[in-house]
Nucleic acid binder design. Structure first.
Length: 423
RNA sequence: GGAGAGAUGGGUGAGUGGCUGAAACCAACAGUUUGCUAAACUGUCGUACUGGUAACGGUACCGCGGGUUCGAAUCCCGCUUUCUCCGCCA
């Protein structure tokens, strides 16, 4: 959430910045300011009454001790009225806070000043490109056909056992998955990240903490009986480690990495976007998360981008980096860079990583703070990025590395992990 | 799943209705003093909201949420969670 102080200090600034995300915040911001004033007034009144009540209660205690029962009872009478008033005010206060909160969580994060205007993915800026676009033989196949031909991924079997978007990986396909996961994890560990294995289901508080709730309620699988959500990314459990915590300034940066299966309902997706590995309901991803001092979070962002680029380089995949425009950015992000690899048979770019700085937006929801040099508590900055998501990496690896004879070459960096150099 | 016992500040742990926002000890931090890798002493030492330029106040919080009471860490109800025993189980 945007800190309430930010909104109060300069409502117009908030409205203007959110316009970059094509979000009209005027009404909400105005109402938030009004409700916050009401909240403060109500609290002042309530606190005063409670203070009086507390004093009287203490008096009564003293009088009873001294045996002055009659006097005590007289004061008791007087407190009845106060009690009624405080009940009313408390109710008003709670209602106000609730209304305030409902509106507050509807405001997306403010985009960083470098975020370009734009409506959709069309308006994203390519800021970096690397690698050679491979020239494939005439008989080149898209990855879903390669997967079937070499019996390494079975989409049909997934349909039968679970449903669309839940493929089986088998043989060398399964081993390739395992190899990529290990490769990504080891690279992250070498870069100073600590590995975690998180739970794959989280409670509603956690979903709220990272901002999936209430914004993306319908995108998560929900186990109603236990009120648990299947994680759409390891970001959720890994970032929620820090919910309701106060860190020390000398702990920064905290760098965590986790592999997890990710579950997404992907309601509303269709067409070529969902063909093969392009979009799945369950997929594997290695996620990196950093918790950082606000003064250094943009340094960490560069650090994470460099890490992701190095992975793609080692996998010999041509990629480019996009600076997302306001309209294409996620609800919680202040700035996001997407990494896309070239999928040579589909002849299109596929997003394989999204690296974001959330600044203090998630931290404010999570209540993750640190004790600053001046002894005051401040909100931390949180960042995360995929490093990397597997399916589209696999798609590009299969397509780009197919040879004249139809076999598929495994990039050198991966061979010690797969235990084979060709499919 | 059944039975029982717990959940207090960074840690250990006292506290069973008012003088307890919470003893004591440990840890941490600051200072004083003496000095050889340390001791002694003194002080500080939770969070959030809120009033005030500030000094300094107010309110709430003893797992979470309700209730009883003039007054709750303390009594009652529900939930979560930990431990022990039993059952089941990879």
């Amino acid at each position: 959430m945007i800190p309430i102080q930010t909104i109060r200090q300069d409502p117009q600034f908030v409205i203007d910045r959110l316009a970059v995300k094509n979000f009209n915040a005027k009404d909400i911001v105005t109402e938030i300011c009004r409700l916050d004033d009401l909240r403060r007034n109500t609290q002042k009144q309530l606190d005063d009454i409670l203070a009086t009540s507390n004093k009287k209660a203490a008096e009564i205690g003293m009088l009873f001790k001294q045996g002055k029962t009659a006097e005590a009872n007289a004061i008791k009478e007087a407190t009845t009225q106060l009690k009624l008033q405080s009940k009313d005010l408390e109710q008003l206060y709670n209602e106000t806070v609730e209304k305030l909160n409902t509106l507050h969580v509807q405001l997306p994060n403010l985009p960083h000043s470098s975020v370009p205007n734009g409506k959709s993915a069309e308006d994203n800026e390519v800021v970096y490109t690397e690698g050679e676009i491979p020239q494939l033989p005439d008989n080149a196949l898209p990855h879903w056909e390669l997967a079937a031909k070499w019996k390494i991924i079975d989409f049909e079997l997934g349909n039968k056992v679970t449903g669309a978007g839940f493929p089986f990986y088998r043989g060398k396909g399964a081993r390739l998955q395992r190899a990529l996961i290990n490769f990504f994890l080891n690279e992250a560990i070498a870069a100073g990240y600590e590995e975690y294995q998180p739970p794959l289901a989280v409670n509603a508080d956690s979903g709220f903490g990272t901002g999936q709730l209430p914004d993306k309620e319908g995108q998560m699988y929900h186990c109603e009986e236990d009120d648990l959500y299947l994680i759409p990314t390891a970001e959720v459990p890994i970032t929620n480690i820090f919910r309701n915590t106060i860190l020390n300034a000398d702990e920064f940066p905290i760098k965590n990495v986790a592999y997890s299966a990710c579950f997404r309902r992907e309601a509303g997706s269709y067409g070529k976007d969902v063909r093969g590995l392009n979009r799945l309901h369950q997929f594997d991803k290695v996620e990196i998360v950093q918790i950082q001092h606000p003064d250094h979070s943009y340094q960490s962002l560069e650090d994470m981008k460099a890490h992701v680029a190095s992975l793609l380089r080692k996998l010999e995949l041509p990629f480019h980096v996009l600076r997302l425009c306001g309209g294409d950015m996620s609800f919680t992000s202040a700035i996001t860079f997407d990494f896309e690899v070239w999928s040579a048979a589909q002849k299109r770019w596929l997003e394989v990583s999204s690296v974001s700085n959330f600044e203090d937006y998630q931290a404010n929801r999570l209540k993750c703070r640190f004790k600053g040099e001046d002894g005051k508590t401040r909100l931390v900055h949180t960042l995360n990025g995929s490093a990397l998501a597997l399916p589209r990496i696999v798609a590009a690896l299969l397509e780009n590395n197919q040879m004249e004879d139809g076999h598929i070459r495994i990039p050198k960096a991966l061979q010690s992990y797969t235990g084979f150099d060709i499919i």
